[in-house]
Simulated assay, not measured.
Amino acid sequence: MRYVEEFRDPKAAKGVLAAIARVADEIGATRDAPVRIMEICGGHTHAIFRYGLDKLVHEGIEFIHGPGCPVCVLPMSRVDECVEIAERPGVIFTTFGDAMRVPGSRKSLMQAKADGCDIRMVYSPLDALELARRNPDREVVFFGLGFETTTPSTALTLQQAAREEIGSFSVFCNHITVPPPIKALLDDPHMQLDGFVGPGHVSMVIGIHPYDFIARDYGKPIAVAGFEPLDLLQSVLMVLEQIRDGRAEVENQYARVVPEHGNPVSLAAIADVYEERPSFEWRGLGEIDASGLRIREAYRAWDAEEKFGIGYAVGRKKVEEPEGCACGAVMTGRIKPTACPQFGRGCRPDMPLGALMVSSEGACAAYWTYGGARVVEPAE
């Protein structure tokens, strides 16, 4: 299949791996002094482990897992607010499936559903809008969640709801943007990074220029990457070659999908429906300025936060992580998942404490599924 088979070709992969090893040796990368490359996207994290790329690359290359999973970076307080909305009489709460089992401080949406709340999994915000058409006597709320990748579909759905004047539909907006948390990580004096593998799906919407500041202001190379093994290996090679040559640029390995200036239709819909929040809380990073989106005044009638009087509309309470849970440290690349004291003990896929073990893009789920990492308590 075009654009799949050629990016999984073992012979080509061996050639790129040999080139990575050669350049890594040229810049003096070793196991004790590795080149630290952060893959921003959780989809990249899973691909790295699924294909064993962390074991195939030169020993002087270390992958650092960034905050690229929108479910994972959502603070527990926002999950609590989802549950609070779902518990209101007459509400049908709709969400993507990967958010169902994310723990809040009281319960997850899955547990709230078991307790009798009408919570339904949908595949698109348009599915939620159709539910509102069929249930005009109910309040149908869509859990708008994700980076720039999913933001356009929610925006287009809100435009449709406004055209049809479907007042029983609203969106609980938790859409966030990628560049601000990267800046927050680069401003952290304890965060040692040599380069980035940029997110492919996000860049398909926004293009490559929102990352210019990474190279211009911080002198770090970045290569926007696809999701096949050769995509990722080629992107690593591009970053290493920049380091070797003393360059810092934004390069586009995924040019077959990612246009330089993004998708104009998607960007127009986002600009029409959303505006920047002054700040938004990220799990593990705290409040980050201008990192979240909120619904503009013209569409405020479909803003669940305003309609139900919760969250930033009325002031929020910070919720502490469960004791021993290191989601924040894993999310920001400070530690590996296996260094969390709860990994495989108090936090497993069947009984997660944190979102990173639940989400299909979570780093802990990647380590558990593909990394061969299992922690088994000794028998008493």
Rank of each mutant, 00 (worst) to 15 (best):
R133L: 11
I20N: 01
T157L: 09
V258L: 14
V102N: 03
E87W: 02
G262L: 11
I208P: 08
V57G: 00
F96G: 01
S124Y: 10
S279K: 08
V205C: 07
Q234D: 14
E380C: 00
L145P: 07
L353Y: 09
M238K: 08
R50M: 14
P341M: 09
F49G: 15
R300L: 09
M38D: 10
G226L: 13
L156Y: 10
H175W: 05
A313V: 03
G226P: 14
F63S: 02
F147G: 02
H46S: 09
N263G: 07
R256W: 15
G292P: 00
R216G: 03
F308I: 13
N174M: 01
C173A: 13
L356R: 00
F93P: 08
T149H: 13
D25F: 00
P199E: 04
A19M: 00
E275G: 13
V71Y: 06
T95H: 13
L232H: 06
S170M: 13
M204I: 15
V171K: 07
L129M: 11
I270H: 10
G328Y: 00
L156H: 07
C69V: 04
G90S: 13
I222K: 13
A223S: 12
P34E: 11
S235W: 00
G311E: 03
D127Y: 03
E260G: 12
G60Q: 02
T177C: 04
P352S: 15
T45V: 01
T95I: 05
G15A: 04
E377N: 11
M1V: 13
E281V: 09
D272F: 06
Y254S: 11
G42H: 11
V224E: 14
Y274A: 14
E87N: 05
I176W: 07
E241D: 12
G346D: 15
G362K: 01
G292K: 01
I208Q: 06
A339F: 01
P341R: 11
A184Q: 04
D32L: 09
P229E: 00
D187W: 12
I119S: 02
F142G: 06
G311N: 08
V141P: 05
A366V: 05
A248K: 03
H46N: 14
Y51W: 09
T338P: 03
A161V: 10
I166G: 00
P221R: 04
D187H: 08
P180I: 05
I20E: 03
E228T: 14
A271T: 14
A128D: 04
P180V: 09
V35H: 03
R163E: 15
M204A: 15
I176Y: 05
A162F: 11
A269L: 14
Q192N: 01
E260V: 15
R247E: 15
E251I: 08
T150W: 03
E39N: 00
D127S: 03
D137P: 09
Y370C: 07
V35Q: 01
A99Y: 06
